[in-house]
Design a binder for these strands. Structure first.
Lengths: 219, 219
DNA sequence: TAAAATAGCGTACATCTGTACACTGAAATT
DNA sequence: AATTTCAGTGTACAGATGTACGCTATTTTA
C-alpha cells in the first residue's frame, strides 16, 4: 500500500488515473458496463494494453469502484452521526445527509444502483454487501436508541434503507427545486415506518409480559 | 392493429418473433442493453437488415418491451383484486401475487429494474410511468378502503410499492426456500407502513376535527 | 557495476457491430 | 392482367473491441 520506491509509487499513481478515468466517464447516459477498456485507458492517457498492468479485466476495475463507493457511503454515515450528536431528528438528518451525498456523488450512486441489478453476480453481491453494512449499522442504532426487538429493528432498518435508496434514485432525475419536497415526503414515509415498528415492537413486549405473567400465575 | 390481409398478418407475426427473441435472450447475466441487433435478428430467424422493417432501432424494440411488461403487471393486479374479493388480507395477497409474478416472469421484471436506472432517459421515463400507474391504483384503493387522507394514502402507496419492488429484486437472487421468509418479512414491513400511515392519518383527522370545533366555539 | 524485473508502448489480428445498398418474389392495388 | 408495394435476403464496409506478442527504457536487485 504505502510502498515507497519510485516505481511502486508511479504504478499506484497511474492506477488511480485509471480509476478516476472510469469514474469520470460515468454519467446519467453512460453506465460502467458500457465503458470499454480502450476508452478508459485512453482517458487515463495510457495505451490500451497497459491497462493489463493494473487490472486483469474491466470487471476487476468495476469491483474496485464499488468498493470505493461503499467507502464513501460509510464516511457519509459518520458525518451524519456527528450531525446527530449536535442535536436534531435522526430521520431528518439522515435523509438530508443522503441527499447531499447524491448531489455531490451522483455518478457513484448511479454506479451502485445500476450494478445492484446488473448482469454480473459478483457486482450484485458486492453492492448488496455494502448496503448490508449500511443497514446493519442503522439496525444497531435503532435497537439501542429505541430499545426495539432485534427482528423489528432489522425490518425497520431494511425498509428505511430501501425507501431512502429509492428516493435517491428519484432525486437523480429530479429538478433541483423538487428535491426539497422529495426529501420531505421521504421523511414522512420513514416516520410511518418508525411509528409502525414502534407499535409492533410494543405489542410484542406486551405479549411477552403477558406470557410471563400467565406462567407465574399457572405455577 | 387487427388489419387482416395475408401480408400484414405475416408482418405482425415476425414482429412478435423479434419481441419474443429479445425477451428470450434476457437472463440474470444478460441485459437488454447488452443485446445486439444482430443477435436478436438471428434468434428470430431473420437477416440482420430485416430488423429495420419492424423497428428503427434497438431502443424502439426496448420501449415496446417495457410497455408489454407494464401490461403484464396490470393484468397481475387484476388477478390480485379478484383474489381479495374472495377474502383474505390485502397486503398478504398482494405480496404473494407479486412474488408469483416474479417467479413466472423473472426476466420481464429484471428488464423493468434495470431500465429504471439505465442509461436512456426515455426508458427510465417509460418504466417510471408504469410504476406510477401501479402506485396510483393502489393509492385509490387505500384512500377508499381505509378512508385515508389523500396525501397519506399516496405516501403509503408509494412506500409500499418501493418495498415490494425491492423485495422482488431480492427474490431474483434468492434460493427458492428463502422466498417464503422474504415474503413474510415484506408483509411485516408493509404492515409497519400501514400502521404508521393509519396513525398519522388519524392524527390529521383529529386535528381537523379540533380546528372545526375551535372555530365553532369561537363564534 | 552487471543482471533482472517491469511499466508502458506499438503493431497486429480476429471478431463483432450497425447499417447502406441493390435485389427478389409475393401480395396488394389499379 | 399490369403495375406497384414491400417484407425479407445477401453482400459489403468502416469502425470498434479485447488481447497476444515483442520491444524499450528505467528502476530494482544482486
Amino acid at each position: 500500500m504505502a510502498m515507497s520506491g519510485i516505481r511502486a509509487l508511479q504504478k499506484e499513481k497511474t492506477r488511480r488515473q485509471l480509476i478516476d478515468a472510469a469514474l469520470g466517464q460515468l454519467s446519467s447516459e453512460r453506465s460502467f458496463s458500457s465503458l470499454s477498456l480502450r476508452e478508459v485507458a485512453k482517458e487515463a492517457g495510457l495505451a490500451p494494453t497497459s491497462f493489463y498492468r493494473h487490472f486483469s479485466d474491466m470487471d476487476e476495475l468495476g469491483l474496485t469502484l464499488v468498493d470505493e463507493a461503499g467507502l464513501t457511503l460509510r464516511q457519509l454515515m459518520r458525518q451524519a452521526r456527528q450531525r446527530i450528536e449536535k442535536g436534531g431528528s435522526v430521520i431528518q438528518i439522515s435523509v438530508l445527509t443522503f441527499m447531499e451525498f447524491i448531489e455531490n456523488n451522483g455518478n457513484i450512486f448511479r454506479l451502485l444502483l445500476r450494478e445492484r441489478s446488473g448482469t454480473s453476480a459478483a457486482f450484485r453481491a458486492a453492492v448488496n454487501r455494502e448496503i448490508r453494512y449500511f443497514t446493519l449499522e442503522l439496525c444497531d442504532y435503532l435497537q439501542q436508541a429505541n430499545k426495539l426487538d432485534a427482528e423489528v429493528a432489522y425490518l425497520q432498518a431494511n425498509a428505511a434503507v430501501t425507501i431512502v435508496f429509492s428516493a435517491g434514485s428519484d432525486a437523480l432525475d429530479c429538478d433541483k427545486k423538487d428535491l426539497k419536497e422529495l426529501a420531505l415526503r421521504t421523511i414522512k414515509q420513514l416516520r410511518f415506518i418508525a411509528r409502525g415498528a414502534f407499535e409492533f415492537g410494543l405489542r410484542n413486549d406486551v405479549r411477552v409480559e403477558a406470557r410471563k405473567k400467565s406462567k407465574v400465575e399457572s405455577k
